[in-house]
Design a protein around this nucleic acid. Structure first.
Length: 263
DNA sequence: ATGGCCAATATGATTGGA
């Protein structure tokens, strides 16, 4: 079972890149973020034509998450619990059946939080606390669980080209990293770090200032695995080459292979 | 790590992104 995540920065603008990458990498389940469309206008057809079921949770203009799956969804649940007043479309969870039981996957678009001295940052921190509470509850189920998405968190100084330049940024502040550790300390495995200690593994390069050609990147897109999923991890990788395609997203896909067979 | 971008919006300027 191959599971991937990709912040596409508008699904409508990325259809060509998406279909090319889906054909090349052939993931079974894909978590998308920043789809930037209402559900009625989501371009389902190109993905259904490639054999994917499509689950969406979008809104006008901003945010928006989705899950594509080669296998039928048993359950689909939009929205992160814990704040009925939060209207941002940043979370959708789905389950599929496997030979070893339920596989649960969530597509996550964690708030950016900049600038840090505003309510945008307190919203980010509260969202992380809600995600931790949700995860704590889900881990009681003892299922393979994959929390995949754009976390807007640079976990360590090894995950950024120039740590000093990001020291005061909402993605790298000590409190942000502390809240991320509180989440992972529940018992989640960062898939990329389970397979590599290398520096310079990035998933995002800004469109501005020639960040891509200079390789000024950051690693902020993560697949976090419950122990039942991590025990079956065989491969994890970053499809960096996709950043050099025409009309790219500023993020690239990240994927894992789990030794789990569809039912 | 900002000179330089990109996407959406009743759009030609503003907001959000990271």
């Amino acid at each position: 079972m191959r599971i991937a995540t990709w912040n596409v920065n508008s699904v409508k603008q990325r259809i060509e890149n998406l279909t090319a990458w889906l054909t090349e990498r052939a993931p079974d389940i894909v978590c998308l973020q920043e789809t930037k469309t209402v559900d009625e206008a989501f371009p389902r057809q190109p993905f259904e034509a490639l054999g994917y079921n499509v689950a969406v949770h979008g809104q006008k203009t901003f945010n928006g998450v989705a899950i594509l799956s080669k296998y039928k969804f048993d359950e689909v649940t939009p929205g992160l619990p814990g704040d009925p007043a939060d209207y941002h479309a940043r979370f959708i969870e789905a389950t599929v059946s496997t030979k070893s039981g339920v596989l649960r996957v969530a597509s996550i678009y964690l708030p950016n939080g900049n600038p840090p001295d505003t309510e945008k940052y307190s919203y980010k921190i509260k969202w992380m606390e809600r995600l931790t509470k949700y995860t704590h509850e889900r881990l009681q189920l003892e299922e393979p669980l994959v929390l995949a998405g754009d976390y807007n968190v640079i976990p360590t100084a090894d995950d950024v080209h120039n740590p000093a330049a990001w020291a005061a940024d909402a993605l790298f502040l000590p409190l942000t990293r502390e809240k991320f550790r509180t989440l992972t300390n529940l018992g989640l495995t960062d898939a990329i770090r389970a397979v590599s200690d290398e520096k310079g593994l990035y998933t995002f390069w800004d469109y501005q200032a020639g960040a891509w050609p200079k390789n000024w990147g950051i690693r902020i897109d993560h697949l976090l695995l419950s122990s039942q999923a991590a025990d079956r991890l065989t491969t994890a990788g970053i499809d960096k080459h996709v950043r050099s395609w025409e009309r790219p997203s500023d993020h690239v896909p990240v994927y894992v292979d789990l030794d789990i067979e569809a039912a």
